[in-house]
Computed example of a mutant assay.
Amino acid sequence: MERLTTGCVTEQHRPTAGTGVLAGGAAYDMSSGEISRARGFVREFLTDAQSLHGLDVSARALDVAQLVVSELATNVCKYAPGPCLLDLEVDGGMLGITMWDSGSVLPTALRADPARAGQHGLEIVLAVCQSFEVRREPVGKRVRVGISLLDGPQDDPAGPTPW
């Protein structure tokens, strides 16, 4: 197991023995500077998945995963300041991204409004992910999304999407 520690950030990458699952996690004391660290953790995790474990990860998936984590982390900074846990899990051709924070308010997408400036993060996440789930925890909430790591014939995500 590889363990990296930088200040308040704890990051781990670990293959789960015998399951074909690659997992990693990081803990952040969420401030705006931590958003770029979270994106970097995702980039490093998926780059290692490719180079060290031979997993297929499309350029689209790498970009989408970083975008999604950036949007989720931004919401934590804005609405649930404090600690945040980020878990990544590759199982087959899917990347699971789970983010826990201490805020109790569940996110909801706003109605489309071309005049609205900002607050489009959840709309973006819903548009690019193959699955989305949010659930309340005894403390805070947990948001989990799924992203296809592989591309279909038109460079779109491979596999079914519920949207």
Rank of each mutant, 00 (worst) to 15 (best):
V68I: 13
V69L: 04
V69C: 09
S70T: 07
S70M: 08
E71W: 01
E71A: 04
L72M: 13
A73F: 10
T74C: 12
T74E: 13
N75M: 03
N75W: 02
V76R: 06
C77D: 04
C77T: 15
C77R: 10
Y79R: 13
Y79K: 14
Y79N: 08
A80E: 01
A80V: 10
A80P: 03
P81H: 06
P83F: 14
C84P: 00
C84T: 00
C84Q: 10
L86C: 07
D87F: 12
D87C: 10
L88Y: 05
E89F: 06
V90C: 11
V90P: 00
V90F: 04
D91K: 15
G92H: 08
G93E: 08
L95H: 06
L95F: 05
L95Q: 02
L95C: 06
L95D: 00
L95R: 04
L95Y: 01
I97P: 13
I97H: 02
I97S: 02
T98V: 10
T98C: 12
T98E: 00
W100K: 14
W100H: 14
W100P: 03
D101K: 02
D101Y: 01
D101R: 09
S102I: 07
G103R: 12
S104I: 10
V105K: 14
P107L: 06
T108Q: 15
T108E: 15
A109Q: 12
L110P: 07
L110R: 14
L110F: 10
R111G: 02
R111K: 09
R111M: 03
A112Y: 14
A112C: 12
A112P: 04
D113R: 08
D113H: 12
D113E: 11
D113Y: 13
D113K: 08
A115W: 09
R116Y: 13
R116L: 14
R116W: 13
R116F: 14
A117S: 06
G118V: 06
Q119L: 07
H120V: 04
H120Q: 11
L122G: 03
L122E: 00
E123I: 08
I124M: 13
I124W: 07
V125C: 01
V125A: 05
V125T: 05
A127E: 10
V128Q: 02
C129E: 01
C129L: 05
C129I: 07
Q130I: 00
Q130M: 04
Q130W: 01
Q130V: 00
S131M: 03
S131K: 11
F132K: 05
V134K: 08
R135K: 12
R136D: 03
R136P: 00
R136F: 03
E137I: 01
V139Y: 10
V139A: 15
G140S: 15
G140T: 07
K141A: 09
K141S: 10
R142Y: 06
R142A: 15
R142W: 08
V143A: 03
V143T: 15
R144I: 06
V145G: 00
V145M: 01
V145W: 00
V145L: 03
G146S: 12
I147V: 14
I147A: 02
S148V: 04
S148E: 01
L149V: 02
L149K: 12
L149R: 07
L149C: 10
L150A: 11
G152D: 15
G152W: 06
P153V: 15
P153Q: 13
Q154D: 05
Q154M: 13
Q154A: 12
D155W: 06
D155K: 14
D156N: 08
D156A: 14
D156I: 08
P157Q: 02
A158V: 05
G159P: 03
